[in-house]
């Protein structure tokens, strides 16, 4: 069995048929439709919240909002942009709500579960790379929310500047400057930890 990507599950025809049925309140069609977006939505939520627990809440909230709003979805805009805009808003609302509470643990950003690794890697190299990824996730988590959202969408999720402007409901200039400043901050943070990041052997 092959893990299906977004494009494979929902060709434009299949997607619009599912959207039509979901608009009529058909929960089964809605589920099928959203399965194609679930993994990326969760990844965005996880990068924004920094832990699995909050990411799960955000995913649920985003799915509910999409389900309730889908009958008003205008077919002329991209469904995926619309979906990620709602997901991002659900995350930002959740983060604002949690601001009054103690900051969430960044431990949830650890790699989890079993996954294949490069068999040729030394244990030290492996541990260092894991540590670097962990620190980078933490630094991303420390960026202001608007900046974080733009950087995550661009540098991890690979959206174009135009798509990001659509998702964040901001103009291109703002998006570009947020991404640029976000990257600059990340560079500074990485530069501040040469003992971890400047290792020629890793």
């Amino acid at each position: 069995m092959v893990v299906k990507t977004e494009a494979e599950v929902t060709g434009p025809m299949e997607e619009s048929r599912l959207i039509q049925r979901a608009m009529g309140g058909d929960a089964a069609s809605f589920n099928t439709l959203m399965e194609a977006h679930e993994r990326r939505m969760y990844a965005v939520a996880l990068r924004m919240c920094g832990n699995h627990e909050d990411a799960q809440d955000c995913l649920q909230e985003a799915m509910l909002r999409i389900y309730r709003a889908i009958s008003g979805f205008k077919a002329q805009s991209s469904f995926s942009t619309w979906v990620y805009r709602i997901t991002m808003n659900a995350c930002l609302d959740e983060l604002r709500k949690r601001k009054s509470r103690p900051s969430t643990s960044l431990d949830g950003l650890l790699d989890s579960g079993w996954s294949p690794v490069d068999g040729g890697e030394s244990p030290e190299g492996h541990a260092m790379r894991r540590e670097m990824r962990k620190m980078l996730r933490q630094y991303i988590g420390e960026l202001p929310e608007d900046m974080r959202a733009a950087v995550v969408l661009r540098d991890i999720e690979g959206y174009s500047y135009e798509e990001i402007a659509g998702i964040l409901d901001a103009n291109m200039g703002t998006v570009k400057s947020r991404i640029s400043r976000g990257r600059e901050r990340l560079r500074e943070k990485i530069g501040g930890r040469p003992e971890l990041f400047d290792r020629p052997d890793v």
Partner: peptide
């Protein structure tokens, strides 16, 4: 910048959704 780019590329754009999270949103819908 080169270093940041290489590191960013190691972070996954898609992650496995825990079964609990899948069940949670489907139940809510």
């Amino acid at each position: 910048t080169k270093q940041l780019k290489a590191l960013m590329e190691q972070l996954e754009p898609e992650v496995d959704v825990p079964l609990a999270a899948q069940a949670k949103w489907r139940g809510a819908v």
